[in-house]
Each structure stands twice: as C-alpha cells, then as structure tokens.
Design a protein around this nucleic acid. Structure first.
Length: 576
DNA sequence: GCCGTTTTCGGCCCGACTGTTTTCAGTCG
C-alpha cells in the first residue's frame, strides 16, 4: 500500500470519527498522522523495514500498529469497523465549507439526509428548518454553503494566488484609515498551491475598513462581517479572509495569520510552558495579563519567547521551533545569493531572446555567469538543436563571450532530453564539449513508476549529466508529477554527484519543497533556475527560490550561489 | 490518540462570527 493510500485511510477514519462525535483530540491525532505521512518522501514500507515507524512525529503505539496492519494486511480492525458506519455522502456533506461534521450528522439523523444533493433538496422544500437546532436562517445558510462550495476552486498555483491577494492588500493599504495591509496565510509562506486568501490590516477605523472589503475588485460576496474579521468570496473561486486590528497589535496579527496552524499550536504550547499566552493580539503574561510587546514588528513575537526570528516559509510545524530553540535555524538562501543561472533558452530553440540579449539581461541582474541550454534535437516542437545547429550555436556563444565584460562568463550547454531508455539525446563528443548539461524528461512520461525511475537513474549515471531538470515534470493545476520513486532518484543523485534542479517556472516549482528538503537531508546538491525563455523570464527565479527556502536550503545547498570556480569544482567530473 | 526541562495521567491553541440554545455550540483558520 502506498503512503498516499495509507494517509487516505487515516483521513477517512478521522472524518468518520468526527461525524460520530468522537473525542476531537483523537480526531486530531489521526489528522496529524495524515499530514505526517503526506510529508514523507520515503515509502512507509522502507521505514517499517528499519523498524522506525514509531519515530515519525505523531505516530504513537496505536497509529504505528494500524499503519503496520495497512502495510501487511491492507486493512485494520478500526478501518473495517468505520468504513460503512457513515454514508460517504454524509462525509462529503460534512466537508462542504461552512457545514461541518456536527451539522451533517444532525441532518442525517433527524432528516435522513445522506448526501449533498439530498440536503439541498430538503432545504429547498423547507424541511430543514423544522429539524431540532435548525431555523430558517440556518436553512438558507446551508443552501448558500452548498452553492458556494460548487463555485469554490481547487487550490490555486501560487503564481495565480499571490499576485491576486497582494493586489487586494494594496487596494486596502491605499485607504486613508489603513496604516498597513499585508497578504498573509499560505500565500505569504509561499506554498506552491494556495487554498484560500488571507489579508491582515492595521486600521484606525475598523468599521470603515470592514465596509470597504465588499467593494474590493474581485470580491463577489461577503459571507461574514465583523469588526475583527470579514470573510468574502472572490471571482477566482477562493475564499478571502480579511483580519482587522489596531496598528499597535499588527505585529501579533501578521504573525498569527501568516503561520501554519501546526506552528501556532506548537508556539502556544511553548509559551504556556514559559508562563506566557499568545493570541493574535500579542504575547501576554499568563497570570497578570501584562503585554510583552506592542507594535508592527512581527519578530517581537519570537523575541518575547526568547527565540530568533522564524521566516514565514519555515512556519509549518516541521521542527522549526525546536531548531530555533537550539539556535540552529538555517540561513535561508536569498535572491541576492545567486551568482548565475544554469538553465535558460534562446531563439536557437523556443526562447524569444538572442544569446547576447540573455547574457546582457544576466549582467544587468548582477550575475557572474549564465548557461545557455537550448533544447536538444528530439524536442522538435521546441525547435530542438541538431548537431549542426548546436555547433553553430557554440560559435555564436564564443563570439558573444569575447565581447562581454570581464568578470562575466557565458557558459555553453544544452537541455538534453532523457530518452525512453534513459540515454541523453545528444552525441557524447558534443556533451563532452559543453560546460553545463541539463537532462530532462519531456516525452514518453506516462510509463509506470519502475520504468520511469530506472530511466531517470540511468540518466543520472551518465558521466556527462550535470543537472537533472524539473525532476518530477509536474505542471501545477495541469499535469500530475511523473510516477517516480524520488527516494531512489535522490539516492542516485547523491551517488553520482548529479545536481537536482528546482525549476522556477511558476507553473512547475519542481522539485517541490518536500523533495528538495529530503534531497538536502540525504546530501544532494541543488540548483535553482528560472528555465527562462525570455530576458524577463530570468526574474521567475523567485518561484523556485520560494521552494528552496521552504526546503530549509542555505546558499551552501544551492550550487548557483557559488563563484564560478567553485561551481566548476563541484560539478560532476567527466570520467568517461 | 499523543505526549512529558512539572507529568506515564490528564491535559491537548485561541479567538471571531453566526444563529437561536437566553449562555452557548458549531465552524473556521
């Protein structure tokens, strides 16, 4: 059974127990297990083989035993007991935002409602408002929740959600009574996909700001509205939460709504052990209620707890608080650390800028080097380079290089297709001449996991391959990742000295944060590249940088932050 | 069900908004 399948079963257990009214902390324990499993890169089988299941955070005696059952028998006693206890439609109803487990159960038990459709029909016939605990208003809200649920988008890619929420925040910030307005939530943590939008606002007139939310461009409906919070629906199908506060509370407010739930829970538990209490208004002495700081500075929350500042990207409850307490937080890589990029295209294949234009754009960005890596021959849809055209391009690169200022180096290269058998789509004598060889899978990517993994591993074993480009091939919202055993791929990258790319194309962000973090843990080197197809495309680096930072990467982990001599030293030596 | 610089038992983050239950439960983040 795969990790995802085990996680789904624990999810189903949690959802069912919740509708059944079980102890909420037990439900949380199962949900924590789901999250812990979803962030594993290594298969549970492997971890079990080493006898280390119980070391997974959130895995105690019971969940370890049940996981073992799933792995060996495909099921476990509790799962068999609960799987038919609640109709699937009731679980779906409970999952509609705004409805919830208690309401779904009440409708099921008192009105016989067993699905979203039945709930809708019953509400339309006015049969809900007569049920105990319900009224006309609640019946109306139920219908609205069901309708809104249908318009709700799946999680959106960050590159869609972040500019959108930043624009709304800027609209609010422009208001006279607003002191500050910032995008918060998972968008500020730079998760690769975003499930809802959060904005925090420091305002001198909460009533006026509250009203203004309805008039923001893109807001289609206000669902809840109060002095501290407005919940709205937007035209991109995302919920928007705007939180309002006094300017002197802004630091605490921004912190609270920028951090993942697991981070906040862990932080508040730490505060409690120190005799302190944290909420979105500040840090307080638990006994006297005395406030420990005031102001707009988010970092003060950590200062009040005796901790160094924790960057938003790290606030996911993945051990960052423990690391902060040990003063062992990573010095996260920043945009200013980059000395160049190693995977870019020109008009020689499917780019829009010439070799010279790309070089000049790189110089303008302050880079010390740039590699030109156009597509290889077999990717004809992208005007891939034949042997003859690649040789011509090398002449042009050499000519341009001579005219560029000293201190900048234009590197030759190619993005060679990894063919179905794992070989590189370029002759060896050519590969041997190039400074940078990126290898990527573009075609025939629907094979099974074993075949895909073997294919990529064979490519990694090539003495010519420096960098594995966009390793999982995902396109956010459009294409799932290839079926790949990333644990095996990472191990092969470490063994062969091949660098793994975090491709920064906004719709790729590939490797993602989990894989990049695992790669770092296993001792792999990484590189972040825009995979630019234009001069402005070089600026897309930031989307990959976000993944790198979420993966706890430091400049030492990312080879294109190195000076050129150092970069050349760490690239795979040509031993063939 | 998990977990332990107080604890192997008794806790488990904390607050906003809504509706209808006149004192709070449900949902959300």
């Amino acid at each position: 059974m795969t990790n995802h399948e085990v996680a789904q079963r624990f999810q189903q257990i949690a959802d069912t127990l919740e509708v059944q009214g079980e102890n909420p902390f037990k439900v949380r324990a199962y949900r924590n297990a789901v999250e812990a499993i979803e962030r594993l890169v290594e298969p549970l089988d492997e971890i079990e083989r080493r006898g280390e299941l119980e070391e997974i955070p959130g895995f105690g005696e019971a969940i370890t035993a049940k996981t073992r059952d799933f792995l060996t028998k495909g099921t476990t006693k509790l799962y068999e007991q609960i799987k038919n206890a609640v109709p699937p439609g009731v679980l779906k109803l409970a999952a509609v935002p705004g409805i919830g487990p208690k309401t779904a159960r009440a409708l099921w038990e008192s009105a016989g409602v067993k699905s979203v459709e039945e709930a809708e029909a019953a509400a339309k016939e006015g049969r809900i408002q007569t049920a105990p605990g319900f009224g006309a208003a609640k019946e109306k809200k139920l219908l609205e929740a069901i309708n809104r649920g249908r318009r709700l988008s799946e999680r959106l890619p960050l590159w869609t959600a972040l500019p959108y929420v930043e624009r709304l925040a800027a609209e609010l910030a422009a208001r006279p009574e607003v002191v500050r307005a910032e995008a918060a939530g998972s968008a500020r943590r730079h998760r690769d996909t975003v499930g809802d939008l959060d904005i925090v606002v420091a305002t001198n007139d909460p009533a006026a700001t509250e009203k203004a939310v309805a008039g923001l461009s893109g807001v289609t409906e206000v669902m809840e509205s109060g002095r501290a919070k407005v919940a709205a629906m937007t035209d991109i199908g995302m919920h928007l939460d705007v939180r309002l506060g006094r300017p002197e509370d802004f630091g605490a407010l921004l912190h609270h709504f920028s951090s993942g739930q697991a981070h906040n829970i862990a932080l508040r538990e730490l505060a409690e052990s120190m005799g302190l209490k944290i909420n979105e208004y500040g840090v307080f002495d638990a006994k006297t209620g005395a406030e420990r700081f005031q102001g707009e500075d988010e970092a003060q929350v950590y200062t009040a707890l005796g901790l160094p500042y924790i960057e938003p990207e790290l606030r996911e409850g993945r051990g960052e608080i423990e690391a902060a307490r040990r003063n062992a937080l990573p010095r996260l890589v920043t945009e200013a650390d980059f000395r160049g990029q190693l995977h870019e295209h020109t008009t020689w294949s499917d780019g829009t800028a010439s070799v010279r234009q790309m070089a000049e754009a790189a110089i303008a960005r302050g880079y010390e080097y740039l590699a030109i890596t156009d597509h290889s021959h077999s990717l004809q849809i992208a005007n891939g380079l034949s042997r003859e055209r690649l040789l011509e391009q090398l002449d042009e690169v050499a000519a341009v290089r001579r005219e560029l200022p000293a201190g900048f180096t234009l590197l030759t290269g190619i993005e060679a297709d990894i063919l179905a058998d794992g070989s590189l789509d370029c002759e060896e004598d050519l590969l041997a001449r190039l400074d940078i060889v990126v290898g990527s899978v573009h075609i025939r990517h629907k094979e099974d996991e074993a075949a895909m993994t073997a294919r990529v591993v064979r490519a990694l074993e090539s003495p010519y391959l420096h960098i594995l480009g966009h390793p999982t091939g995902r396109l956010l919202g459009k294409r799932e990742p290839f079926p790949l055993d990333m644990e095996v791929v990472i191990a092969a990258a470490v063994r062969t000295g091949t660098v793994l790319e975090i491709n920064a194309s906004p719709d790729r962000m590939d490797l993602n944060d989990l894989y990049a973090h695992r790669a770092k843990q296993q001792g792999a080197r990484l590189t972040v590249n825009a995979d630019a197809h234009s001069t402005t495309g070089l600026g897309s680096l930031r989307w990959g940088l976000y993944m790198a930072r979420r993966a706890w990467l430091t400049p030492e982990d990312v080879v294109n932050t190195y000076p050129l001599q150092e970069l050349r030293r760490v690239l795979k030596p040509r031993t063939a």
